[in-house]
């Protein structure tokens, strides 16, 4: 049993002890509990902040002296522990910072490496271009080559777009979807209809599937494929719009390897979702038939055409304007 007076003194000093611990640690609202011959100073969360031993017997002054002595030692240890934790925290932050710097350095390094590769590649080609003396006689040999974008034909009147499309499909020997577009001009439409019906040049290869896309519910359009007529044109002669067609593309039973779009489709009245079309043409051979007579186009037509082509830039490597009649660039 501990002397009562020593308890009273002790309790008086405990408040001092708490104040000292609070001062040292920066914690507030600490509490103390006396048990098992010691003082347990705790944080409101219940975490033990420090522990001081109460000496039994002897002069109270000595007890308190010893008590404070031990508390000082404990507090020093606590400080050391806190300092250690702080140090660890700093170290961790420093490590994280270092990692961040290293990551950034890696990104910069990769970028520089890529730039270096590009420069090296450029220098290699430059060297290749000028190193070996070459003198080649130009023979103007023409050959069909496969490049991503072809061309030609804004004018529906001549049916050039569809004729060009037919040529591509025949050469490719592939299933192809051909998209064309007509407006409301009945004369143009009738003439084009007549050409397609009466001129074998406009009849497509058997293996090719072709169709034309017209504005919703407007002019009738000659069917270029009986198969498509069965599938896509209902009994009431309601013709599918570009949008209708695109909406069903994912379910169409044929995998078109080639998509041919005549530049007439540039005259978009909003019925054609070009964004959707652009997604569809990814990974397919795409031919866009555009105008061979660029000089003859009006500014508005050029603007429309460029706007149309811009939709496909992300999906098409090279966009070239080619005079298809000569097979040469213009």
């Amino acid at each position: 049993m501990e002397p009562l007076n020593s308890y009273i003194s002790l309790f008086q000093n405990i408040s001092l002890l708490i104040a000292k611990v609070e001062q040292k640690t920066g914690y507030t609202s600490l509490s103390a509990e006396v048990k098992n011959g010691g003082v347990y100073v705790k944080h409101p969360s219940g975490v033990l902040v420090c522990y001081a031993t109460i000496l039994q017997g002897g002069a109270l002054d000595n007890e308190l002296y010893n008590h404070y002595y031990k508390v000082e030692i404990l507090l020093k240890k606590l400080e050391a522990a806190l300092f250690s934790i702080q140090l660890e925290k700093q170290t961790l932050e420093e490590l994280q910072y270092r990692k961040l710097v290293m990551d950034e350095q890696k990104v910069i390094s990769n970028h520089l490496e890529q730039q270096r590769d590009e420069i090296e590649e450029y220098l290699k080609y430059r060297q290749q271009n000028i190193s070996k003396p070459k003198k080649i006689k130009r023979k103007r040999t023409i050959k069909c080559v496969e490049i991503l974008l072809v061309t030609i034909a804004t004018y529906l009147l001549t049916g050039f777009g569809m004729k060009g499309a037919k040529e591509i499909v025949t050469k490719q020997q592939q299933y192809a979807l051909i998209m064309d577009y007509v407006g409301e001009d009945t004369n143009i439409l009738n003439e084009h209809t007549s050409r397609i019906n009466n001129n074998k040049d406009y009849q497509f290869h058997n293996d090719a599937i072709a169709t034309a896309i017209v504005e919703t519910g407007k002019n009738p359009w000659p069917l270029l494929s009986d198969l498509l007529s069965d599938m896509w044109f209902d009994k009431t002669n309601n013709f599918p719009s570009v949008v209708d067609y695109l909406n069903h593309m994912d379910y169409f039973p044929y995998d078109f390897e080639t998509l041919v779009i005549t530049a007439n489709a540039r005259a978009n009245d909003g019925s054609c979702d070009f964004d959707k079309l652009a997604r569809y043409i990814r990974e397919r051979a795409v031919y866009i038939i555009t105008d061979q007579k660029k000089e003859a186009m009006t500014d508005k037509e050029k603007e429309e055409l460029y706007s149309f082509l811009n939709y496909f830039h992300d999906y098409i490597g090279e966009v070239k304007m080619i005079d298809s009649s000569k097979g040469m660039s213009i």
Binding site: T141, I142, K143, C144, V145, K171, G327, M328, S329
Partner: peptide, 20 residues
């Protein structure tokens, strides 16, 4: 497929992509 002018250099075929 498109018609392009072909030049043979060191047994390799190059096509004329552009002129200026």
């Amino acid at each position: 497929m498109v018609e392009k002018e072909i030049i043979v250099i060191d047994d390799k075929e190059y096509f004329v992509l552009n002129e200026l």
